[in-house]
């Protein structure tokens, strides 16, 4: 494949997959937030914060997208891998891998949304469980964080900015 295909696929998968997963996650948690607020408006603040947690994965995806584009100089002038040399193919494949890592680990937004949704339910019943609910939901994000760590290392050391 041409290097440009690897690069753009990698960028698209990072932001696309993680973004879609975040959308699902926020959607699930948002439905719960709506339910909690329908009964008692006092739940609004707590539900809002919990609902926002699954959004982080899409941000990781977006950052990765920009780093991939920067690293390949699609942003900031002059595509770096125009020639179809083995070196260029390897480097663009690394960028693809980085994007894929973030995209796939970003899927953790869906279970995170489900945890957040259950957390919103728990907070609606007993507001004291708010912090615990946040911590539980944050657990699911660990995988996305590891994915981002891996991707950053791949981009920075494998290709360079």
């Amino acid at each position: 494949m041409e290097p440009i295909v690897y690069v753009s696929l990698g960028a698209a998968l990072a932001a696309g997959l993680a973004g879609a997963a975040s959308a699902f996650g926020v959607g699930v948690a948002g439905a719960a937030a709506a339910g909690a607020v329908a009964e008692d408006e006092k739940n609004f603040k707590n539900a809002l914060i919990l609902e926002g947690l699954p959004m982080t994965q899409s941000i990781y995806g977006l950052i990765t997208l920009f780093l991939i584009l920067l690293s390949a100089r699609i942003i900031g002038g002059g595509f770096r891998f125009t020639a179809n040399t083995p070196d260029n193919i390897v480097k663009s494949a690394i960028l693809f891998g980085a994007g894929l890592t973030v995209g796939l680990t970003g899927l953790s937004a869906i279970p995170q949304g489900i945890i957040a949704s259950a957390g919103i339910g728990a907070v609606a019943k007993n507001p004291k469980t708010f912090t615990q609910g946040i911590i539980f939901a944050a657990m699911a994000e660990t995988m996305a964080i590891f994915g981002l760590v891996g991707a950053l290392i791949m981009i920075a050391t494998g290709v360079g900015l």
Binding site: A29, A32, E39, A47, S117
Partner: peptide, 8 residues
């Protein structure tokens, strides 16, 4: 998601 939060 919605009903259970509301029921809670």
């Amino acid at each position: 998601s919605y009903p259970n939060a509301r029921i809670n």
